[in-house]
Write a protein that binds this DNA or RNA. Structure first.
Lengths: 262, 262
DNA sequence: TAAGATTTGTTCGTATGTATC
DNA sequence: GGATACATACGAACAAATCTT
């Protein structure tokens, strides 16, 4: 087990006496954030333009621009040129949130078993909840994906492609969750797995048995979901996770050595 | 259940034909990221200084500075002034990663039951794994926290403080996890809960029974962890989660209406 | 302590690009 | 197409922080 220090949970309470020197642009960015929160601005709402901010904060154009870059980089604002342009509030996209979080794990060397431990806990529960509650469109999407690869992969490239398809299948399920937090975590794991650089080692030898089992699992799962059979859906997913994990558990995995943030 | 479109999982594959106009600073920031990844630079490693980048990329000083702000905002670099200063690679802190992810959920209106659903799945498993595997220091920290509030809260303010202490207890457990992903998710949930703005409603009426139960749970849990009794640790945690959830399940929760990112 | 060197931080003026009307 | 309103980018100068001697 890991030794670690107690993490401050709520900066507003525990970080009180810190008085770090924050550069002017960061201060401005913070003020703008506060401004947005105070007025409870939402997705499309516009911020003052450059000139107004220069006047408002008493800083130069360059400083304001740096501040806006900070907010943009965090996905909080978008900026357009031209008349009627300027900056406006923009909700953080799921994709960007995953990229930003991916940067954190870039330095962490997650193991495959870490990820599969989480998947085994979350994904069976997810499908159990989904059973009987999916709309027709989602079900037909899933069914289509399940039947997408009627033949075992012939080449490593095909094998890789099939694996990614499988992860898309899981992400589609995650998107159907009404629990946004659970959906995000599951999607994030699918994305990490699909970003692996070790494809070649993991999927170098097309594996007929794995292909057959994965395909059967998906088809059976869709059926259980449609019929509203929670217990069966859960069991299928757990079995699928265990199988996939067993197949990979020898490999040491490393997160894609690539910053994922846009 | 929610309708939603299929999310592209791997931008490198699915986003191929996008050719968004990226501003100069963003392009520069991306190039620097690639540069870092290619050379596999790590935590302290230094980047070229402003002057060198200006020459390297053929852009102005302002552009380089905006690029550096982008990287800083994502937690990827740190910059210092003075001789021997400049920018260097800096691993994304857990705290910042939580803030950035918090920005995503700012717009999402997570419900309390969403969070407790996840907590019930993850935290019992966490303590089951931890049982018998904690070092003496962590155990003594936990024991101390468990005994920290010998008396029930007298005021709403005390109540709030006790609740936060309890969340610190959970975060401390999360930090002891050897699964970084699981640890992060659990810590993140603790942070969201401690950032709630609805404190007054949730903890307005000091609740003796809740206090007694929470305290007993913590003390019993530490004992089970020390003795290596996985099953008991799991059961205690599950019971604790269920109790806490039941107490709160009437309330509609909203994420702190405050951008959390630094 | 003080001076000097180095590197980022900030400002201002000007010019250019871009979208809307 | 032209005018307008905005962001984008450049370059030169000076300010501030921090290290070294």
């Amino acid at each position: 087990m890991k030794k670690s220090t107690v993490q401050p949970i709520n900066p507003k309470i525990t970080d009180a006496p810190r008085a770090l020197k924050r550069s002017r642009p960061v201060q401005v960015a913070d003020q703008i954030k506060r401004w947005v929160v105070e007025r409870d601005l939402r997705k499309g709402d516009k911020l003052p333009n450059e000139a107004a901010m220069i006047a408002q904060f008493g800083v130069s154009k360059g400083t304001v621009r740096e501040a806006m870059r900070i907010l943009e980089a965090q996905g909080l604002t978008v900026t357009k040129t031209g008349p009627g342009g300027g900056s406006s509030v923009g909700e953080v996209s799921k994709d960007r949130a995953m990229s930003l979080l991916g940067n954190y794990f870039y330095f962490k060397d997650l193991s495959l078993s870490d990820i599969y431990e989480m998947r085994k806990l979350l994904e069976p529960e997810l499908v159990a909840k989904l059973a009987g509650n999916l709309d027709a469109e989602t079900l037909s999407d899933l069914r289509e994906m399940a039947h997408q690869h009627p033949e075992p992969a012939q080449t490593p490239e095909e094998e890789k492609q099939q694996h990614i398809s499988s992860l898309v299948f899981h992400a589609r399920l995650a998107d159907a969750a009404d629990n946004d937090l659970m959906g995000f975590v599951i999607s994030f794991m699918a994305r990490i797995l699909s970003d692996l650089t070790v494809y070649r080692r993991l999927y170098a030898t097309p594996n007929k048995e794995l292909w057959a089992r994965g395909r059967t699992h998906q088809i059976d799962l869709v059926e259980a979901l449609e019929k509203g059979d929670s217990a069966r859906a859960r069991a299928i997913m757990l079995s699928h996770m265990e199988g996939a994990e067993r197949m990979m558990n020898v490999q040491e995995m490393r997160i894609t050595r690539e910053f994922m943030a846009e």
